[in-house]
Structure formats: structure tokens, C-alpha cells
């Protein structure tokens, strides 16, 4: 078993076009490091320094990880992580 990570269209250049990839780790941070080994550059599109980028939403199963523990959110085999670009903007 592994953790399934669903990748949005805009980031599929890092996954050879795949809509979903698998990885492992005990926290979201570890999972993203693990994914970056196979899909170099992906982590940098999601993480800025120590924090998730403002422009992406990352969900653990049905919950936005910002409401869990951010990068420190624990993850386990069988979980699904979904990455979606935030849809936002405005005149400001």
C-alpha cells in the first residue's frame, strides 16, 4: 500500500502526464520529499520554504491540510492526497 497523490493538469508536466502518482512518508512533508525524488521540481511548486504555497490547495482525503497540520499533517498508507490550484484573484 502507498499514498495516492492526485495531480492537477498544470503540474502533470512533473509526472509525465500522470493524473495520480504514489508515494510514502509519515507526514505530508515527508511524502512531498519522497515524491520529489521521482518527480523532480514538484515539491518546489507546492512548498515555499517551510510552508505550502498560497496558490495551491492540498487536501488529505476530504480535508484541506491548512485546517489540519499543514506540512506536519500525519499521513498513512491508503490515504489520498489531492492537489488543486486555488481559484482566486480579484481587482486588489
Amino acid at each position: 500500500m502507498a499514498i495516492e497523490v492526485r495531480i492537477p493538469t498544470i503540474l502533470r508536466t512533473y509526472t509525465g502526464g500522470a493524473k495520480a502518482v504514489e508515494g510514502s512518508g509519515a507526514t505530508l512533508d515527508e511524502l512531498l520529499n519522497n515524491l520529489d525524488a521521482a518527480h523532480g521540481g514538484l515539491r518546489d511548486r507546492l512548498v515555499d520554504g517551510e510552508k505550502l504555497r498560497r496558490f495551491v490547495n492540498v487536501y488529505l482525503n476530504d480535508e484541506d491540510v491548512r485546517f489540519l497540520g499543514g506540512l506536519e499533517t500525519p499521513v498513512k498508507d491508503g490515504d489520498t492526497v489531492t492537489v488543486l490550484p486555488a481559484v482566486a484573484g480579484g481587482a486588489r
Binding site: T9, I10, F55, P85, A86, V87, G89, A91
Partner: peptide, 27 residues
């Protein structure tokens, strides 16, 4: 898929702002 993503500007012209451009994530 999302064919159209719309939003309104209520005091400025209907042209993408810098914020709109930096967030645009659906090619």
C-alpha cells in the same frame, strides 16, 4: 473540466489584475 472560470471586478475594468494572473492555474 472547467471550461470557463469567471469573476467580476466591481470598480475597475474587466481585465486580469496581477493577482488574477498569479493565481491562474487552469491552462
Amino acid at each position: 473540466e472547467a471550461v470557463v472560470i469567471y469573476h467580476s471586478h466591481t470598480a475597475t475594468e474587466a481585465y486580469p489584475s496581477r493577482t488574477d494572473i498569479s493565481y491562474a492555474g487552469e491552462p
